[in-house]
Amino acid sequence: MPKLQKKVLFCLAGTLSFACALAIAAALGIQLWVRGTVLCKTGALLVNATGDELQKFIGEIQYGLFYGQRVKQCGLGGRPTTFSFFPDLLNVIPASMHVSVVIFTTALIVFALVGTSFFMFNAFGKPYETLHGPVGLYLWCFISCSCGCLVLILFSSEVKMHKLSEKIANYKEGGFLFKTQTEHFENSFWIVLVCTLVHFSNVFLIRLAGFDFPFSKSKELDTSSGAIDLMY
């Protein structure tokens, strides 16, 4: 493949990686990871609310990785309150899992920036070592994909399996019990998913530039070395 086309492909992959780093950095700091509604079950049972009356006991909740907001509805109007995960909710939520999500999200930003620099170095520089060349590009893309997958899996498990929204809604609520009605992932979660797919697609851009996958290349080297051994 001509050098110009390789430069264009590497520049495209580097630009995509840099855009992913910026997008994930923005997603990390906002509270648009999960949005849902919670039912004040205690209040609804006290007045035996049904139908339209039940809407007076359904509040809202939304949160990110660091802070969020909830609106309690117990029949007397909404009561908006804000909360933060650190350090308020560490005794309520699965803290190790939540901290892991934050760490892997930060790592995803770092490795996306590292991948960007190496893509640009391969486009305009002269790679002279293994990790500076195509093998290194495959490595950074693989690490970025792995971090993105871990973020998605851990956060989904935290929300769905550990019922994170309910634990947040019932935080410091001695007399009322809240039950999650609906919950869905918001923009920040889908940004991480899209960026993970972008890093995966960068692997095929490297292959399109004319560089074989590392494993297939190693197999070719093994067969050639075996033939040389047989000759001698």
Rank of each mutant, 00 (worst) to 15 (best):
V92F: 03
Y138K: 05
A19S: 15
K217S: 15
V71M: 03
M161E: 13
S188H: 04
L230N: 07
F185P: 03
L76N: 09
F111R: 00
F104G: 02
S17P: 04
F85H: 06
S146L: 15
F213N: 14
V99Y: 10
K172S: 11
N122Y: 06
G174L: 11
Q73T: 08
E173Y: 00
Y171D: 14
F189R: 02
M161V: 09
L193P: 00
F85G: 08
P214M: 02
V110R: 03
Q31V: 00
T116M: 13
F118W: 03
A95H: 07
C145D: 04
F121W: 11
L16V: 02
I228H: 10
T105D: 09
L4H: 10
I24D: 05
E53S: 12
L4Q: 14
S201E: 09
I61L: 12
R79I: 15
D229P: 00
L164K: 10
L32P: 00
T37G: 01
I228L: 14
L193C: 05
C149I: 12
M1T: 11
L54A: 13
I58Q: 12
P214A: 08
W190F: 15
N122S: 13
F18R: 06
I168W: 03
R207G: 04
I58N: 03
V92M: 04
E183V: 06
A112I: 00
I143C: 10
P80D: 11
I93D: 10
C195M: 09
G59A: 07
W140V: 11
K41M: 05
E166N: 07
L139F: 12
L113E: 03
R207T: 08
R70N: 05
T116F: 15
S156G: 08
S165Y: 01
L45H: 08
V101F: 01
S156L: 02
G59M: 02
V99H: 06
R79D: 13
C40F: 01
S96A: 15
K160L: 07
A95F: 03
P134V: 07
T105W: 00
G175D: 08
I191C: 09
E60P: 01
Y63K: 06
S224N: 06
V135P: 01
I24A: 05
C195G: 04
H162F: 14
F142S: 10
L22G: 06
Q181A: 13
K41C: 01
L32F: 04
D229Y: 04
K3V: 05
I191F: 03
G68F: 02
S224D: 12
S144M: 11
F85S: 06
L46R: 15
S84P: 00
S218P: 00
F118H: 12
E186K: 05
L12G: 01
L9Y: 10
G210L: 03
L45G: 02
V92C: 01
L90F: 03
E60N: 14
H162L: 07
L137D: 07
I143K: 06
V8K: 08
T130K: 12
A26L: 11
Q31M: 06
N48A: 13
L32A: 09
A107G: 13
A13H: 04
W190S: 12
F176L: 12
G36I: 03
S96E: 15
F178L: 08
